[in-house]
Design a protein around this nucleic acid. Structure first.
Length: 551
RNA sequence: GUCCCCGUAGCUCAGGAGGAUAGAGCGCGAGAUUCCUAAUCUCGAGGUCGGAGGUUCGACUCCUCCCGGGGACGCCA
């Protein structure tokens, strides 16, 4: 809706004032009564032309009205109101095209990667991972639907100290099962080891499989073996949890493989050749301060091993080689401080500044009956993502994770989300769909009318109540709003739109009956419901949330 | 200590490239069901947009300082 208007305004400015204007806004007026859209173009012109904005708005408004909308100047604003005929024509078009009405080829086949979750395979996923998973998945859905080629990728940190600690922790607990206290491992285990219940379970499985044979094994060998075993098992666990949310990845990329293929060494060499490294204290450093970081960062430790950072540079260099025109990383907000050094390294490698787009996802706090449930990684006491999904269901988890901007903290109240009332936003939206489907079923049993889009189109002109026109607008504007969600990478915009639509729908539903004696009115209302229904279904599909036929 | 983010109704938050009387949900108060799902709806009370300056025709939005909350500052990942 906005795009067409924008073009008309530009054209008129050109015709009347002989000026090119770019940066004016078109947005919803504060008050619905003022119109459907408004522009501030007159204010901007008044600066350029040194004329009073009011009279400019007045003058432009006279030239702007056409059969699709009327333009009216108020103060310096120009307000546009779409004609009912135009809205009904568009709505008919929506019924004709179905979901395709909302879709546009914004990406033109541009190739993108969304890398998300990428949690270390050293424990089960927790709530924060879940939020990143949902946000990443929906962004990928959105981009894919709007014409981008999208690869969903999970980077597996299966190399380095963290997974070494995993192997060590399993070994330590395994020995405990035989009543053996390994004094040499104890210290590290106490300080840095993983202590969740799942470690004990893994240790038990190891015992069942290997018996006591690992007790005599060389420590390093055993740790290595258990590390690989643990990583494999935990990745399975992670995959199955993501599966519960209906999230699947195209690529699972192994950090370890980067090392085995010599890619880390290669990229470090590259940085060295370009003069961005130096040696100090026996370690090799990257000059990240040259790129705005607070301090330089180690690539190769004094013991000769690579840092996580070195591997990550290699990974992103690899992504770049694969030809993605842009890469979107979904990160926990605690990684924020890591960004400057990575961006710095990519710049050093000659990768364009905006190639890497990082979306930060803030933490999730869990509540029950208004009481916060504290989570502690240290003691291993926390509610896992899997437990939460099993408790409240995938739809609820996904929806709630999308109710706020992802870069602000989110409170998740388990009890509230299980409640079947309007307090619960998931049900509020899903109930709209169920109600509409209920009407369709009823119409079918009473009159044997099939809800056929082609047939219904002809009844759109009979819609006349102001609430009906309002609903039509909501549905038509959904397209602009989803496009904005794509452009800004803000999936929560869709959530808010669906909630607003649900509010208007439930209100309408309570005031007007659909099934009536007057056939034309009835069929026009069914047409309206059909348009709403396919919009809701489309919105929920993008969110990965189900649209139930009955509740 | 340095850097970053946040501060909008009792609570949880939308909004923001400056624009017209600041929005929603929950909670609170009062009401609605002979009728397509009351898992709903209607009405009401509730705000110096953390504070003080500044820029501007115009500031919740931009700038500076202050106050309050959170986070990041490893040869961890």
């Amino acid at each position: 809706m906005k795009e067409a208007l924008e073009a008309v305004i530009k054209q008129k400015v050109r015709e009347i004032y002989g000026l090119e204007i770019e940066s004016f806004t078109i947005e919803k007026p504060k008050d619905d009564n003022l119109g459907d859209l408004a522009t501030n173009v007159a204010f901007l012109l008044s600066k350029k032309l040194r004329r009073d904005p009011k009279s400019l708005a007045q003058q432009m408004a006279e030239h702007l009205s056409n059969e699709e909308f009327s333009a009216e100047a108020l103060g310096g604003f120009i307000n546009f109101t779409f004609s009912d005929d135009y809205l009904k024509r568009e709505f008919t078009e929506l019924l004709r095209k179905g979901e395709a009405y909302f879709v546009e080829d914004m990406g033109k086949g541009e190739s993108l990667q969304v890398e998300f979750v990428s949690a270390n395979p050293t424990g089960p996923l927790h709530l924060g991972h879940g939020r990143g998973a949902v946000v990443g998945d929906v962004l990928a859905n959105l981009l894919k639907t709007y014409g981008y080629k999208v690869v969903r990728e999970y980077y597996i940190n299966d190399a380095g100290y963290q997974v070494y600690l995993l192997g060590l922790s399993i070994l330590y607990r395994y020995k405990k099962l035989f009543g053996e206290e390994d004094e040499q491992l104890k210290d590290v285990y106490e300080r840095e080891g993983y202590k969740g219940k799942y470690i004990d379970e893994l240790a038990k499985d190891v015992k069942a499989f290997y018996g006591s044979s690992l007790l005599k094994e060389d420590r390093d060998k055993a740790i290595n073996l258990l590390k690989d075993y643990g990583v494999k098992r935990l990745l399975e666990e992670i995959k199955s949890t993501l599966e519960l949310l209906n999230i699947r990845f195209d690529v699972w990329y192994s950090e370890k493989a980067l090392y085995l293929e010599g890619k880390v060494q290669k990229v470090v060499d590259l940085l060295m050749e370009r003069g961005y490294t130096y040696e100090k204290d026996g370690a090799l450093w990257f000059k990240s301060t040259e790129f705005g970081d607070d301090k330089d960062r180690v690539l190769i430790r004094s013991d000769g091993t690579y840092t996580y950072f070195a591997g990550d540079i290699a990974y992103h260099w690899e992504k770049y080689q694969r030809g993605f025109s842009k890469v979107i990383n979904i990160w926990g907000a605690d990684h924020y401080g890591y960004l400057p050094r990575l961006k710095g390294a990519l710049t050093a490698l000659g990768i364009p500044e905006n190639w890497l787009n990082v979306q930060l996802v803030q933490m999730v706090r869990l509540f029950s009956e208004g009481q916060e449930i504290r989570m502690s990684k240290r003691t291993g006491e926390f509610i896992t993502l899997k437990e939460l999904i099993e408790d409240v269901g995938s739809d609820a988890v996904r929806f709630v994770f999308l109710t706020k901007r992802s870069d602000t903290p989110l409170d998740f109240d388990i009890e509230l989300i299980k409640r079947k009332t309007s307090e619960n936003p998931v049900f509020y939206v899903q109930y709209m769909h169920a109600r509409i489907m209920g009407v369709f079923r009823e119409v079918h049993t009473r009159y044997q009318i099939d809800i056929d889009k082609e047939y219904l189109q002809t009844f759109v002109p009979f819609l006349k109540e102001s609430q009906e026109i309002k609903l039509i607008k909501r549905v038509l504007f959904l397209k602009d709003n989803i496009k904005e969600a794509v452009l800004r990478l803000h999936p929560h915009i869709i959530t808010y739109e669906l909630l607003d639509l649900a509010k208007d729908f439930h209100s309408y539903y309570n005031h007007y009956r659909v099934i009536l004696e007057d056939r034309n009115t009835m069929l026009s209302r069914i047409a309206l419901l059909k348009g709403i229904e396919l919009s809701v279904k489309f919105g929920l599909k993008l969110m990965g949330v189900g649209a139930p036929d009955r509740m």
